[in-house]
Every structure is written in structure tokens, then in C-alpha cells.
Design a protein around this nucleic acid. Structure first.
Lengths: 168, 168
DNA sequence: CTGAACTTTCAAAATTTACTGAAAATAAAA
DNA sequence: TTTTATTTTCAGTAAATTTTGAAAGTTCAG
């Protein structure tokens, strides 16, 4: 296998992986392309490499930037915008986990809290068991959420050197 | 909010959550319905509650069983099959994590290993950097994978009482 | 065996999601 | 200001996914 072929392979597989986790295939592919590109790429570069339209490129690059795992680069003297991906995969993972927690786990915790406030006879067996089920799920989600916070904080401390300060 | 309304709310929200993680909405909804049902439900029950076809019901229930988070119950004297969901949410989470690791993380680790075996001049800068990127991703995936194994094992030990044996 | 009760399958239809491309907007250069 | 390069938007279209429902398959009682 040659280098270019290997890059394409990687891009395809990253796309499939993304799809399985509710992430748009093209978005994952653009991310993969930027991950294995040493130089910043322009929208045209991405369009050519992945054979996709300008609109598609624009929207998915923007979403990657919203996630905080791709950033825009302006080269002096150039009109075009270029893009690079965060290469530290641990940072990438932390960002994604943090965002998904915020956008998907926290809202469901909130909803579960509301569902517990159900009206009616709390001594009714059916009602009791429903509340118990919801409570268990909520507790689990809160624990998981805290676990994530811990990981993210550990990570941030590591990079900002806060952990080291503990030893001073 | 009344009990029945709260159940529907839960089912809807569970469906949305599932969708965001690449899980079929109906499958997540059936799972939610079974989670909040105290009695085992038949295919007809599920069809009626969620207003979906028999085929859809059948396929999604089967997939939930493949995941190991729903099981088939046969009532003596009844021709129909009934279904119940595993209610311990921690067990459910462990099962899902384990399956997704097997079906999605392990294959990508394998592919990454192959991509490292790229032909050509290994002293070429481009090639070197590609291999390094892939290697970092692979290492990360392997670490995550081990972390998951640890959690799952902890869980299994807990339930089989193996941890207690350590104190004997 | 036969027929009733129930489950499974899968081609076609419906729905959802993603993509295109051209027009509008923006921003820099002339 | 006008022209030119580039990005953004979004209505319409295309593609992918999900769902239906009827036919085929299975199982079991009589």
C-alpha cells in the first residue's frame, strides 16, 4: 500500500466509524483528511480530495470548528482560508466527549428530573416503580457525567501544569 | 403530568438520545417502553403502544436481544412471546459499551495496524508523519479499549462476587 | 395430517437526512 | 466606487435509512 492509498483508506474508515456514532460521514471524512494532512488545506483542496460540493464542504468544516477540533488559518497575502485539525488525539477526544455531554447527556438528565415530578398517587405501585426506574437512570447519567468532568479536568490540569503545582 | 404521559415523554426522549448515537429511533423507543413496563410485553402490545408495524417491531426487538439488553419470555400456556428489558441500567450500559467496542472500536484498531504497514520510503518525512499520526490514534484507541475492559471486568466481578474473594 | 396462531422476511414505499449548485453576501483589491 | 475573489446560504434534489404489510415460514393443538 502506498501513502496516498493509505490516506484514502483512513478517510473511508474514519467516515464509517463516525456514521456509527451519529456523526455525518462527510464531516468525519473531512476531519480525517485534515488529520493526515501536514499542510493546512483550503476549501478547494477538500472539495477536490473528497469530491464533494463547496456547500457541503463549507457546512461540515464549520461544524468541525464548532466542535473545536478544526481551526481556520489565514495565510498572509492569501485571500483564501485554510483549515487544520487538532492533531493531539487525546485533546480531540476530550473535546468531543465534553461537547456530547453538554448537548446530549445534560438535557436528558434535566428531562429525567422533570419526569420524576409526576403528579398523582405516589403510593401507587406503578407510579413508584416508574419513578424508581427514572431515578436510577438519572443517577447513572449524573455519575457518568461527573466521571467525564473528572477526566476533562485532569486533562486540562495536565496541559496547564496545575497538577505540578500540587507538588510545590 | 400523569403517569402515562410521563412514560410517553420518556420514550420520546430516549428515542432522540438514541438517534444522536447512531441507534435507530424505534429500537431505542421499544427499549424505553420495555424499561418502564412492569409486565412483559408482547409484539402486539409494542405495536399498539408505539403505533408501528409488526415487521418493524420484530426486527428491532430482535436487535435489542442481540445486544443482550432485552430477553424473550415464554409464559406457560401462552402461544405468544413476551419481552422484558434488563432493568439494571449499569448492566445495560456495560453491555452496550462492550458490544460497541467489539463491533466498532476493535475493527478500527485492526485497520490502523494495517495502515502502519505502508510500503515505501520510511525515511520520507510525509510517510513518517502519517505513520506517527496513525500510531497515536491507535495507541489512544487501545488505551480506551483497555479502560473499557477494566470497567466491564470490575462490573462482572462485582456481580459474580469475585471481588469479595479477594478479601478472604 | 390440517388449520389456527403467531413470527419472520423482504421488496416496495415512505421518511429522513445529506448534498448540490447557483444566487446572495462579504470582503479585499483596483 | 467598481471589480474580483471568496465564502455562505438554502431551495431543490439525491441518497440513505427506516418502515410497512403481505406472503412465506414456523409451531403446535386437535
Amino acid at each position: 500500500m502506498k501513502l496516498e492509498e493509505a490516506k484514502l483508506q483512513f478517510i473511508q474508515n474514519w467516515g464509517v466509524l463516525g456514521t456509527g456514532w451519529g456523526i455525518n460521514r462527510t464531516m468525519a471524512q473531512i476531519h480525517a483528511l485534515l488529520l493526515v494532512s501536514q499542510e493546512p488545506l483550503s476549501a478547494d483542496d477538500i472539495m477536490n480530495e473528497l469530491q464533494i460540493s463547496r456547500g457541503n464542504t463549507n457546512m461540515n468544516v464549520r461544524e468541525l470548528m464548532d466542535w473545536g477540533i478544526v481551526e481556520k488559518i489565514l495565510k498572509p497575502g492569501e485571500r483564501k482560508e485554510f483549515f487544520v485539525a487538532e492533531k493531539d488525539i487525546w485533546k480531540v477526544a476530550m473535546r468531543i466527549i465534553k461537547e456530547r455531554k453538554r448537548k446530549e447527556v445534560e438535557p436528558i438528565i434535566k428531562v429525567l428530573g422533570e419526569l420524576k415530578e409526576i403528579e398523582g398517587d405516589k403510593s401507587d405501585k406503578e407510579t413508584q416503580q416508574f419513578i424508581e426506574t427514572i431515578e436510577n437512570i438519572q443517577k447513572f447519567a449524573q455519575q457518568a457525567s461527573k466521571g467525564v468532568d473528572g477526566m476533562v479536568k485532569m486533562d486540562e490540569n495536565w496541559f496547564t501544569g496545575t497538577i505540578l503545582k500540587l507538588f510545590k
